[in-house]
Every structure is written in C-alpha cells, then in structure tokens.
Amino acid sequence: MPAPMKVYLAGPEVFLPNGREVIEAKQALTRRYGFEPNVWLGEGEPPPAEPFAFGLYISAANEAVMRDSDLIIANLTPFRGISADIGTAYELGFMCAMGKPAFGYTNDPRGYVERLTGDFYAGKVEADAEGVLRGTDGLMVEDHGMVDNLMVDGGIDRNGGVIVRRRVEPARILDDLGALEECLGIARDRLPG
C-alpha cells in the first residue's frame, strides 16, 4: 500500500489563542481523509535566540517541509485585514511554483471586491472618467470575481485545485474547520492514491 500523500496545511492558526488545539484538529481531520499532515516539529539544531535569526530559522524550516510535501491546503480566510494571511499567501505561491497541487478554503464567502469596497473603502468607490472603479485614494479596485488577489485564485486553479467558500459565525471565522473538511474531500477525490 502506498504511503499517504503529505499535505502542507497553511494558515494563520499559529497566532490564535487556541492555536495548538486548532492545528491538532486540522491534522486529525487530514488523517481522517487519508492524507498525512506534514509539519515542522521543531527538530534539528537549537533555534537562535536573536529574534531576526529565529525568524529566518523558522522560515527555512517551513520551506524544507514544503519541499517535502505533495500538496498544499491553505486557509485563505481574511486575517488582520481584507486578504489572506501574507505568510500563507507566500507558502501557497512557493508550492504553486514547484507545480504541486494546491487547494484553499475561506470562512468568508465574499469575494475580494466585496471586502475591498465594503470593508476597506466603506462603500466609497466610484467609476472614473474611463469607467474604472476607484477608491477614495484614487487606486483602482480590481474585480475578477475571485476570493482574493488574482494570483492566489489563479495559482490554485492552474495547480488543479479549488477554493471552498463557506460562511461561518463571526466568532468562529478563524477556527471553524468545515471548509477545510470539504476541501480535504475534494482533494481526496481529485488526486491519485
């Protein structure tokens, strides 16, 4: 019997007060769908004490785990703003650049343009003389009907995946795992093995 595919589970859960619990629940769910969560467990040399060096140490460790993973499933729920966590976006791009299957999910089903116009610009957008939608700062408002920046949606699409959108109660927006479970089911059905 072949070994299960290794999944890199990207997302901002490490920052949550209940982060360890949420990460462990994500890993258990991943195993239930026949995959192996591939995570850095802090093995190796002792980490440096200086904060910048410690950050570089974690970055390198995560990149090593991504290289050793077969696919990525990224939590794209807006985090500290209107878009996905920037670290998660980097990890998604890293995996897509290696040509690995990519899937995503979000607990905010609104598209990027709805979050940009509603949450960031508070509805104050107007078309300019050429018909281009612009915010109060004059910047163009892109509308491609996508979950996030077109590079996020495009990378997932080109690498065979989908983005699952769900609406959850606001108190659970960062730790509800229903969309992850749906994403795992789709990945299991689409991928060999």
Rank of each mutant, 00 (worst) to 15 (best):
L184I: 01
T106D: 02
A28W: 07
Y90E: 09
A53T: 09
L191T: 08
V22T: 14
L180T: 00
D153A: 13
R80N: 13
F103V: 04
F15L: 11
M140H: 14
P109T: 08
D85G: 03
P101D: 05
Y8S: 01
Y8L: 04
D128W: 09
P46N: 10
I86Q: 15
W40Q: 07
I186Y: 04
N38E: 05
P2G: 10
N62G: 03
E169L: 12
C183A: 12
G118Y: 07
L116I: 14
R115S: 03
A53I: 08
A102P: 00
R67I: 05
M146Q: 14
V113F: 10
K100R: 14
L76F: 02
P37H: 01
R134E: 01
L29Y: 04
G87C: 02
P47A: 13
G42F: 04
M140I: 15
G160F: 02
A53W: 08
G161H: 03
G34Q: 04
Y105A: 05
A3T: 11
D189A: 15
G145L: 01
A102Q: 01
R32Q: 14
E169G: 10
I73A: 01
L177D: 02
G118E: 09
E169S: 14
L71V: 04
T136F: 12
L41I: 13
N107C: 06
G154K: 09
A60D: 14
G104C: 01
G160S: 01
T106N: 02
